[in-house]
Design a binder for these strands. Sequence first.
DNA 1: AAGTGGTCTAGACCACACC
DNA 2: GTGTGGTCTAGACCACTTA
Lengths: 249, 249
Amino acid sequence: MSANKTLSEVIAETSDEPSPLYKQVKQGIINQILHGHWQPHQRVPSESELVSELGFSRMTINRALRELSTEGYLLRLQGVGTFVNEIKAFTPMLEVSNISDEIKSRGHFHTSRVLRVQKQTASDSQAIQFNLRPGSQLFHSVIVHYENDNPVQLEDRVVNPEVAPLYLQQDFTKTTPFAYLSQLAPLTAGEHTVEAVIANDEEQRLLKISNTEACLQILRRTWHQEKVVTCARLLYPGGRYKMFGRFQK
Amino acid sequence: MSANKTLSEVIAETSDEPSPLYKQVKQGIINQILHGHWQPHQRVPSESELVSELGFSRMTINRALRELSTEGYLLRLQGVGTFVNEIKAFTPMLEVSNISDEIKSRGHFHTSRVLRVQKQTASDSQAIQFNLRPGSQLFHSVIVHYENDNPVQLEDRVVNPEVAPLYLQQDFTKTTPFAYLSQLAPLTAGEHTVEAVIANDEEQRLLKISNTEACLQILRRTWHQEKVVTCARLLYPGGRYKMFGRFQK
DNA sequence: AAGTGGTCTAGACCACACC
DNA sequence: GTGTGGTCTAGACCACTTA
């Protein structure tokens, strides 16, 4: 392929089609990393070195390095230097939106059956999850969502009353917990696990599936600022539900 | 809560703890959006307006708006203006990385058994998926991955020979197809579906699971630039595998 | 003290959209 | 033409790390 080349050579080559200088610098650095000429943990030239080497202004160099840093290619430490990061894992996104909107976007109609909306005392593990004192009160809802009268999601959700004190008084046949909580306390962080499980008898009955059908289970915990808003367990019948996601670098 | 306030008032209030000017501008704008004072599709003051209103330089304003744009809060159109974006759907990320690295990072050891590596003729649907002519040749590999001798992934992969002409000659007990293809043609885009399924008899045997165990199935198609690199079907035994993802806005 | 990245400015030229 | 965002510069001051 190609022998080792300096960054300025790489940039000089790739600038057939004119593009902003900071983009040329970014692409040149990405090439050096992808071709293995610059290895992870290795130090990259400092801003002032790149200024003299490439002849661009420091702001231009700075923008290139800063953006590559937020994109995960580089790691910058004030007073220390700039380093090549570990190779990024491929991180496709799974868009998770309001189930009601999702169903409507397919041209179907969404209904829901509220099985439970009540107060309950936090178990020890729940208290830890919510970062609350043991014995605190929590809200708990269980709802089945239907797409054209077919059950597609069993939503078992525990909610932090500090964030949504009026949760129990909502009519969840008209708005979903997701929509209500999103509007009240927009999500700022979250974590979730996705796994395949076999539903128990009651769940099979509620989702109208057999005991040979796999289910997709999502456990999700979401934050607003520093507070845990809600923990949800979402169960989808395998035969009727797929998650789809796209990713673009 | 609070009556409508101008952006400069919001910024003046929140600047108890000093932070960079561009960050103050960003946070002020985010507040205006979250409090609903600035609605989606609504036009945001232009850079020059913000320069006079806030008294910061244009580069500072520009950086704030530019970053909010890449973060999805704003939409910027050259020659037109800057607008508040739709509220972002919650898009947590599912990190998908090299299975071998993943296993090693848990302190376990990874081995693999290569069941098949061969050329085959594309079916009609495969030709469409790869955007190749019907009847084109494709490469096909089937590999079982083990974590401490327990099967954790069945990888059934079809590869575009144009991208990886030497695919059949690789030793996939030493490097994984993911690692080989990543290095050869770094991913630039991808799509995938996640669903829960029951494996067939042969798959159950290979993964050493019973017919009552659910499996997580990921179908993934990845691109390098304009070319489809590979389509993979990844099957995980439900009891031994969970996908975990974090999200931070 | 020297080198690093982090930020900020005042001014400039450009491409683009709209009138 | 006017206003918009997109980019670029030369210089500046600062906070931080390392020696």
